[in-house]
Design a protein around this nucleic acid. Structure first.
Length: 458
RNA sequence: GGCGACGUGGCCAAGUGGCAAGGCAGAGGUUUGCAAAACCUUGAUCAGCGGUUCGAAUCCGCUCGUCGCCUCCA
């Protein structure tokens, strides 16, 4: 039985979807004003694993993830580059999807964009005004936090306590300093849509309320995102959504992942990674250096709610481990009976059921890999263990592809063949020389008692 | 000032009251023409101090250290 830690209640709860026929899951997507980095990758890998494991457990999942494609940063960035704001956001959204593909993150069923949701957003804002939960002020519309007695329920903060903080900028036009914008009037040159309050654009928080409701209905099962979104973004989403529909809870389980940080000894020890800080590592770089499975293994080696310290050493270790798992999974056979490994399967499920304890679950995969190698080494049948390894690996999104995949450089095939001839003639000096030559070409050759294998050096 | 997270072997990391999972690296061994891979063996009393308990990494208190949120942010 799956248990999920719910930020709302601050405890692990037994998972039961609102509607038994399927799970509705909404994950906050990126603001597409620039390239995604490995912090985004970590977050979306985490929710990819959540989704995959729910499906592995037999649930039908509907997964929706938005793109924030209208916002101050996008407008500013577009202004700087001379590009149209919608061109810029489209470009980065596309890049985001291909980055996620490269990481083997399953595509969501739908990717709504704020700019395509304007009509719905205006209707929702108008309704919030009609209900007395929002008010207009010079073309801006604000949500009235005092009208929501539950405000602060997610972040566990009280309005008066936050008020004491020195960093809340006081805007005279707001009734209360914590009131937040649902609709922003536009300045000249900014993207704008007509509304009952004049030309403007949606505030950040309302888009998720409208998109989530549009794509999944008034109430959903899982709402996810990085833990920096707890306040104010998710708090505000709850306030808007629940006041709008009169239904509670807006989301039954709130899941938040910890942040990628730089580990000890790095240039930027302990610091958070963020585009606004300017210390990001691009996704393509880690995929190239450690492989998609390697980075995923690195992410899953620690618990998703904990901060994840990146270091070359740790990611490298994960990359090496990924190669070992992939090599072991090679002896898998489709349709093999894995019945003799029920204990392994049970332990994997127990670990994952405990709020996605992937670190514990991975230990099962490593054990299976060792088992496969042990059996194969003494000529026994490693296929059942390997097949289970492949199956459970897939449940957490590991491809476990053999390292052999890829194209041999020109002439390498011939060198391998010639080397084989030397070996069978016991001309080892010549064979070793050819091996060195192949290695220089990026081809690693390994001899076994039966045959010679090769794979590309990474 | 308010809210929260964390400090486990060289590195990463699980465990949250009963002999400290797992990965990577290192060392020794088996195997191999050699190399690689693989397999076997091998290391920590859990930031510090005090307390509760038959028993604590795990509960309580204090101290030290690190980080996040309260402003855009996965």
């Amino acid at each position: 039985m799956l248990h999920i830690y719910n930020t709302l209640t601050r405890q692990k709860e037994q998972f039961a979807p609102l509607d038994p026929s399927g799970v509705r899951m909404y994950v906050c997507g990126p603001t597409v004003y620039g390239s995604a980095h490995i912090g985004h990758a970590m977050s979306y890998i985490v929710f990819d694993v959540v989704r995959r494991y729910l499906e592995f457990s037999g649930y039908r999942v509907r997964h929706v993830q938005n793109f924030t494609d209208v916002d101050d940063k996008i407008i500013r960035r577009a202004h700087d580059t001379g590009e149209e704001w919608n061109q810029l956001s489209c470009r980065y959204a596309k890049e985001f999807l291909s980055d996620m593909d490269s990481l083997n993150v399953l595509r969501a069923h739908s990717y709504p964009r704020a700019s395509e949701m304007i009509e719905q957003i205006i209707a929702d804002v108008a309704r919030l005004i009609a209900l007395g939960h929002a008010y207009e002020q010079d073309g801006d519309v604000y949500f009235r936090v005092m009208s929501d007695p539950m405000y602060g329920q997610l972040s566990h903060r009280r309005i008066d306590e936050m008020n004491a903080g020195a960093r809340v900028e006081v805007d005279e036009r707001k009734e209360h300093p914590m009131d937040f914008a649902l609709w922003k009037s536009s300045k000249p040159g900014e993207p704008a849509w007509d509304s009952p309050w004049g030309p403007g654009r949606p505030g950040w928080h309302i888009e998720c309320t409208s998109m989530s409701r549009c794509a999944l209905g008034d109430q959903i099962d899982i709402h996810g995102g990085g833990n920096d979104l707890i306040f104010p973004h998710h708090e505000n989403e709850i306030a808007q959504s629940e006041q709008l529909t009169g239904k509670r809870p807006f989301a039954k389980y709130w899941m938040h992942n910890g942040f990628v940080q730089f580990g000890e000894g790095g240039n930027d020890t302990g610091a958070k990674m963020a585009r606004s800080v300017g210390n990001v590592i691009p996704i393509s770089e880690v995929v190239r250096r450690y492989g998609a499975d390697g980075y995923r293994l690195f992410v899953l080696s620690s618990h998703y709610r904990r901060p994840l310290s990146v270091s070359d050493e740790a990611m490298n270790a994960a990359g090496t481990a990924a190669e070992r798992l992939a090599a072991a999974a090679e002896s898998a056979q489709p349709g093999t009976d894995t019945g003799s490994y029920t204990a392994h399967r049970a332990e994997f499920i127990a670990a994952m059921d405990d709020d996605f304890n992937t670190s514990r679950a991975l230990a099962v995969l490593y054990e299976l890999a060792t088992e496969v190698n042990r059996l194969n080494a003494r000529g026994a049948d490693g296929a059942p263990a390997a097949s289970l390894l492949r199956e459970l690996g897939a449940a957490v999104g590991l491809r476990l592809e053999a390292p052999t995949s890829g194209e041999l450089p020109a002439g390498a095939q011939e060198l391998i063949r010639v080397r084989e001839e030397h070996r069978s003639a016991r001309q080892f000096a010549e064979a070793d020389q050819l091996r060195a030559q192949l290695l220089a070409m990026g081809v690693v050759v390994e001899d076994t008692t039966q045959c010679t294998k090769w794979h590309l050096d990474r």
